[in-house]
Structure formats: structure tokens, C-alpha cells
Design a binder for these strands. Structure first.
Length: 259
DNA sequence: TTCCATGTTCCGCA
DNA sequence: TTGCGGAACATGGA
């Protein structure tokens, strides 16, 4: 379930369970999760070290292991699970064992990645990722500048990590739903007021989600999130929710209040 | 059996 | 150059 709010929750979980303890063992249970790096290298560079800090940018998590950073991407089904009793989740792919417990990186569908990077800044630059929408330096002005000169559907733009990093299918739909803007609306036909509204709604929704996800509390009932079903009643205006495909992804929107 | 899934990448085409 | 549609990746759940 990993978009920005979920990854932020993973980062907090990682900080709570995996920081400042010696890594006594690294088990790679399925090498396909490693991407380019060789298993031996991955293990050798982490074993015996200590994670001293954790950071997140968009959907990417980075943990500082001293001379190298662990990088985790959670794909579609990635998750973290810490246990003191040596219990492993069914789809554990990599396990970091400490003196008093072990943190498992699980990922049923294997779209995620665990590897090593020199440092987050270099990785983000090389990858060309856009700004994180919850970053303090992310302002309405900066957001408007990102959309400047672009065409195409607003949903596509918000989904593109090189433009803005962290939103995925669910939170983009949620943002546009709560802003009353149709997913296919062309970016160059949005008013300044609408762009500002998207900025505000996006940040409010992400913050709300981080707060609730972190406490394992459900998102508010009026959120589109709970009503993603063709023909369902719109919890906001009573209209009918429609299903379509935008940017290759299943999209839900209200045919009445989203224009 | 068939369809669908919170992500990303690559290719071809306009 | 930009944007978009389609397919592929791997796997389980409804």
C-alpha cells in the first residue's frame, strides 16, 4: 500500500525499530528484490554496521548505514515487519537481524527494490525525481512553476514522479476528487485558483493520511478512497462515481462535481 | 478461469 | 520535445 503517506509511516517504523543497533546479519531470501546490486556486495556492505538515520523522499526510503545508504522502494505490495521472536512474514525478501530482533522487508509482488546508494541527494538527482510535496520548501509558487508550460491531463502530471514525487493512483484521485477537478482536465486550462486549490488539498490530504496511517486509523469516510466502485454514490454531492482509465490507471471520479 | 491490483519502465507513435 | 497508449514484470485475492 505504498504511496507517500505509507512510505512515511514505514520510515517512522524503521526509525522506531531499526536505528542505532548493530546489524548482526543480513539475509537475502529472494535476490530478485535487489535489482542491479549483487547479493554478496549488499550483505558485505551492511553487515556489522549500524543504521544511524532514516529519510524519505516521495515513495523512496533511505537509511544511513555510515559509508553507504540502504535504499528501499516498496513497489505495489512492499511493507516492513519487525519481530523480536524471529517470526518472518510469508513474503519476506530481505531481513536485517539485530541483537534483539529482526526487520523484514516484505514484498509479495516483487515490484519493490532494496539496494545501496552513495547518498540520497545523488540518487534523487540521477533519477531526476521532482520535489516532495510535504517538503518545507514546497510552496504554491513552486507547484505552479512545475505545471507551467505543460499540457496533458492533470492526473498524468500529478502521477509523474519526475515532476512531483510521492503521489500515486489513490492520492491523485483523492486530491482531484476533493478539489472538484476532472482527472482529464488539461493542465494548461487550469486557473491559478484551481492550481492553488490542488496544492492545498494535496498537502492537507497527505498530512491527514500520514497522521492516520501512522496511528493505524482509517481515512475519513467521505474520502473517495472508501468509495472506489463504479456507479457508487458520491459521498460529497450525491452524484454517481465513474470508473475510467487515465495514465494507464483505473480512475474514479464524480461525474457531477468534478469538472 | 478471469480480472484486477496503492508502481515503474520501455517502446512505438503522433 | 512532449505526451500518451500498451505491454511487461510477479503474484495473490475476489
Amino acid at each position: 500500500m505504498p504511496e507517500l503517506p505509507e512510505v512515511e509511516t514505514f520510515a517512522q517504523y524503521f526509525a522506531r525499530h531499526a536505528l542505532n543497533q548493530r546489524i548482526v546479519r543480513v539475509d537475502v531470501l529472494d535476490e530478485r528484490i535487489l535489482g542491479e546490486i549483487r547479493k554478496e556486495t549488499f550483505v558485505r556492505k551492511l553487515k556489522g554496521r549500524t543504521f544511524v538515520g532514516v529519510r524519505r523522499h516521495g515513495k523512496h526510503l533511505f537509511a544511513d548505514a555510515g559509508s553507504v545508504w540502504l535504499h528501499l522502494h516498496f513497489g505495489m505490495s512492499g511493507d516492513l515487519a519487525y519481530s523480536q521472536k524471529g517470526e518472518l512474514p510469508r513474503f519476506a525478501r530481505v531481513v536485517f537481524a539485530f541483537e534483539g530482533g529482526a526487520l523484514a522487508f516484505e514484498d509479495m509482488r516483487l515490484f519493490g527494490v532494496a539496494d545501496l546508494v552513495a547518498d540520497p541527494e545523488t540518487f534523487l538527482r540521477e533519477r531526476g525525481l521532482g520535489p516532495d510535496p510535504l517538503d518545507a520548501s514546497f510552496t504554491p509558487k513552486r507547484f505552479a512553476a512545475l505545471l507551467e508550460g505543460r499540457r496533458g491531463a492533470i492526473k498524468s502530471l500529478l502521477m509523474t514522479q519526475e515532476i512531483i514525487a510521492g503521489l500515486g493512483n489513490l492520492y491523485v484521485d483523492e486530491t482531484l476528487f476533493q478539489t472538484g477537478i476532472a482527472p482529464r482536465r488539461a493542465v494548461d486550462r487550469l486557473s491559478a485558483v484551481e492550481v492553488r486549490a490542488i496544492f492545498t488539498a494535496m498537502r492537507r490530504i497527505l498530512r491527514e493520511a500520514v497522521s492516520r496511517r501512522g496511528r493505524d486509523v482509517e481515512l475519513p469516510r467521505p474520502y473517495l478512497y472508501h468509495h472506489r466502485e463504479e456507479g457508487a454514490r458520491c459521498p460529497r454531492c450525491g452524484g454517481t462515481l465513474r470508473r475510467s482509465v487515465v495514465f494507464g490507471r483505473t480512475t474514479y471520479s464524480c461525474s457531477r462535481h468534478q469538472r
